[in-house]
Measured scan of single mutants.
Amino acid sequence: MTEYKLVVVGAGGVGKSALTIQLIQNHFVDEYDPTIEDSYRKQVVIDGETCLLDILDTAGQEEYSAMRDQYMRTGEGFLCVFAINNTKSFEDIHHYREQIKRVKDSEDVPMVLVGNKCDLPSRTVDTKQAQDLARSYGIPFIETSAKTRQGVDDAFYTLVREIRKHKEKMSKDGKKKKKKSKTKCVIM
């Protein structure tokens, strides 16, 4: 069974824990209790493949930012979460993405942009803004509501699919490099 290491990042209060708990335990946590770091595991079937999701729910508070490099190193894919009623959390996505790329030393890291709290009427981040940002990053965008469960499975499952595509691409690139290195030079 394939294991996928997913990391949920975003500013404090955007609903990272609520999304994760909704996926794992099928219930909505409405009281806000700032996370330092929590880890969850769940076995699911995605596109006919049974897999184990190892999900790291991270601290959004700035005082825990020193811990970010460590979990970013171990993560295979990242859910970059903002709240649709919090423009600052949307603007912060850029910083999370840049930090992930720096730590992973790669421009090509599996990510999904997630606009959470889409059940709320007080939207300050337009869907088109988020779609445009995701398009500019070359990553999928999904709106979710941890409260109603809308888009929750889709967000995590899409990230797994992005990781699969990335692994497939990397193995193809690896095979191309191996083929090239088999060419021999004969000096007579």
Rank of each mutant, 00 (worst) to 15 (best):
R41T: 09
K184C: 02
V109Y: 06
E168L: 09
K184N: 15
G77Q: 00
I187K: 15
V114C: 05
I93F: 09
I163V: 14
G60A: 07
I100Y: 00
K104W: 10
Q61E: 13
K165S: 07
I187Y: 13
M111T: 03
V29P: 08
V112M: 02
F90I: 14
I163H: 07
Q43R: 09
G13L: 09
E31T: 05
G77L: 08
K101G: 03
T2K: 14
V152S: 04
V9W: 02
G75D: 02
E62Q: 07
S106C: 14
N26E: 06
R41A: 08
Q129L: 12
R73A: 11
N26Q: 06
A11D: 06
M72W: 06
T2C: 10
R68V: 08
T87H: 14
Q99L: 14
P34K: 03
V14F: 02
V152G: 05
M170S: 05
A66V: 12
Q131H: 11
M67N: 11
I187G: 15
R102C: 02
G15E: 00
R161Y: 14
K165D: 06
V152F: 11
G75H: 10
Q43G: 07
L113I: 14
V109C: 05
T35P: 06
K182R: 12
D38L: 05
V7H: 05
D57Y: 12
G115R: 01
D38I: 02
F141V: 04
I139R: 02
Q99K: 09
V44W: 04
E62T: 08
A66H: 07
S181T: 06
Y32V: 11
D153Y: 14
K182S: 14
Y40A: 13
N116L: 15
D173Q: 15
I100W: 06
T58R: 07
D132C: 07
I100E: 00
E31R: 07
C185I: 01
R68E: 15
T74S: 12
M188N: 15
Q25L: 06
C185P: 15
I163N: 04
D108S: 07
E168Q: 13
L133G: 04
Y96P: 01
D105P: 04
P34Y: 03
Q43M: 03
K182F: 02
R102D: 02
V8W: 01
G15F: 00
T58P: 10
Y71E: 14
K147L: 13
Q70E: 14
E31L: 05
I93S: 01
Q43F: 02
V160H: 05
E62N: 08
G151K: 08
L120E: 14
N26V: 02
Y71Q: 14
G60K: 10
E98I: 01
K179M: 11
A66T: 09
E37N: 15
V114T: 01
Y71D: 12
K88W: 13
R97T: 13
K165A: 08
F141C: 04
H166L: 09
T74G: 12
L19G: 06
L53F: 07
V9P: 00
I93L: 12
L133T: 04
D69T: 03
T58V: 12
C80M: 13
K184I: 01
